[in-house]
Nucleic acid binder design. Structure first.
Lengths: 342, 342
DNA sequence: ATCATGAATGTCAGCGCTGACAAGCTAAAA
DNA sequence: TTTTAGCTTGTCAGCGCTGACATTCATGAT
């Protein structure tokens, strides 16, 4: 065993530490990895040596030996949205807690195939697992590729083949019910919804819950309507146009609008204002996500909070907890946040 | 050399490919790494074998052998802001282009020390280099720790010790000058600025340029004022309060407000509206960053665009381009985007 | 025909760590 | 006292790849 002189620039290895502590490298490895079965005396000696040498694990070597990378991958869509910022924040926080690291792969939804991005990018990073969010979590070709490679993954808010993997999501029903109660209690009686993407399970659930709960409260069916926005960027514009369309086409003008997400809702605010109506007096508006822009606009947006970061946090937790708890898929609650628009 | 049977689950190694192509592993390595000095015939044979086996480099092994990880690290601050989303987007895009991967480390500015986060987190990931943004790029203790470890880093928009490392930034002057010209040309004559953090070089530059350019246009000094917001979250509230304070304290009410960033500007919009003034008729408002919320509010915010993603992209390019081009530090242009508020 | 010359290819150690197993040790059980 | 069982510690190969160096081979110059 040749040792680099202590003043060398090269980082200390297990061998250096072992030599200093007068034990074998393996024993040092045991201490580093918190194995039991190391006597207190030895452990203490080694810990001192560890400190003295400033030892740091060489991940590459460890990975090579164990074939685990302690890396968790995720796709980062082209557009910067609150949803993804939250996902990454939650995931990064969990990674930190569980000793993993988060690797991000850029991905321009629409312009390219996720499968390609996976094969050319993330696969090369040799992550231990991937976190998948909409829309990539419903890409069957991607799932096939992952299964083929034996790459583990956890899906957040999937719409299709929910049982195909461990999956997490939010219970959208709850928040929407709260919202409906609130709108009804504050005297609203004509409702419109700005819908989400048709292939998005959560969107369907939000719609169904919205109308069903209203119906149960005895709302007149002629005072319920839905409008499907054109999905072009920026999303707020889509919301604005949908709103204008709504007021143009409808006999019975709504006094409450619920949008699939906050950006659409903010667009709706612009549209309502253009029509010379005031918020919330003439029209109440509510969004979904409780994104930070909800607090930026004026009046601040009433919206339904969903624990996005928490979902990602738990997804990482599942990955880190080695065992794959298929049964324990998690569905977290959502809740209404009343601000200035409803 | 023992080979795993072809139907095995384990991924192919250089040895497998080599056996299939009837060459040595080293030659395959040459092809994979695009070394010259491989005959066209051999290369072709190897490429076929590569395809047949579905070979993928094992990064851990390569890292161990070369002591490079092809990982680039960055700190992700606690709050999700447009600025950082853009930074990561640009960095991820570049990583993809240069064959690197982006590793994010959560970091709650204010609640903990970056040095700790580095030592307990990112250092363990064994990144080849780090990208540092404000405020971490000005943390001298962090820079000391990095220098001590011999960890490379590129700083974006640093305020202190600019020559200490390779650094990139935007030329804020340019955009501010355009803005001033525009405001002046559209008849504004009383100006106020909502200032940025005092220790932020860019903030100082924006302020100085704003007032200096106005002075050169012959603006009356009594019609220039500045207000320093309290930096509490959400930032928009800070902007709103600062604006209310401004109108309360000032004799000569401003007809144009320039804020350090878009969030402050949006807060200012709320404040101005509360005072019953209209935007842009009574008061023009402009921000800085051209964040996506600038397009969400109504009227859409006039702001100065800075190429945030591009800065990060170039930072990664510098890292990937092995040589450290200290001389070629980059300063990119900014420009005015006129929308509805000024 | 002979010899440089440089291109093409191969050999092999070793990067730092851990899994599997072996060996040494202590203390309780027989 | 001897045996057994359970701790504690050590040995060693090998994860897959590449750098340094050695070897082989073709080619044109002599």
């Amino acid at each position: 065993m040749t040792l680099t002189p202590p003043n060398s620039k090269k980082p200390a290895t297990l061998d250096h530490v072992a030599a200093l502590a007068g034990v074998s490298a393996k024993t040092v490895s045991r201490v580093v990895n918190r194995d039991s079965n190391v006597s207190a005396k030895t452990r203490e000696r080694i810990e001192r040596a560890l400190r003295e040498t400033g030892y740091r694990v060489n991940q590459a070597a460890r990975s090579l030996a164990t074939s685990r990378s302690y890396l968790i991958g995720a796709f980062m869509p082209h557009l910067s949205s609150f949803y993804f910022a939250e996902i990454f924040r939650g995931a990064a926080k969990a990674c930190r807690q569980y000793g993993y690291h988060l690797v991000l792969e850029e991905f321009d939804h629409g312009a390219e195939s996720v499968v390609d991005r996976y094969e050319q990018g993330l696969r090369g990073a040799h992550c231990d697992a991937l976190i998948l969010t909409p829309p990539t979590c419903d890409d069957e070709k991607l799932l096939d590729a992952l299964d083929r490679d034996g790459m583990r993954y956890v899906r957040i808010a999937p719409s299709k083949q929910i049982d195909r993997s461990t999956a997490l999501g939010a219970d959208d029903r709850q928040g929407v019910e709260e919202l409906v109660q609130h709108l009804w209690a504050t005297g609203r009686r004509s409702f419109a919804m700005i819908a989400g993407p048709e292939d998005h399970l959560a969107a369907t659930i939000r719609e169904r819950t919205f109308f069903q709960t209203l119906a149960e409260l005895g709302c007149d069916a002629t005072r319920l309507s839905i409008v499907r926005p054109e999905w072009n960027e920026p999303i707020a514009d889509a919301g604005r146009e949908a709103t204008l369309r709504l007021f143009r086409d409808l006999q019975q003008k709504p006094d409450a609008i619920f949008a699939f997400n906050d950006e659409l809702a903010i667009g709706a605010m612009a549209g309502v204002r253009e029509l010379g109506l005031s918020i919330p007096d003439d029209v109440a508006i509510a969004g979904f996500d409780d994104s930070y822009v909800a607090q930026l606009v004026w009046p601040p947006l009433t919206t339904i909070h969903q624990p996005i970061a928490d979902l990602a946090f738990r997804a990482v937790g599942i990955i880190a907890g080695s065992a794959e708890p298929r049964g324990s898929d998690v569905w977290l609650p959502t809740n209404l946040v009343v601000r200035g628009t409803a």
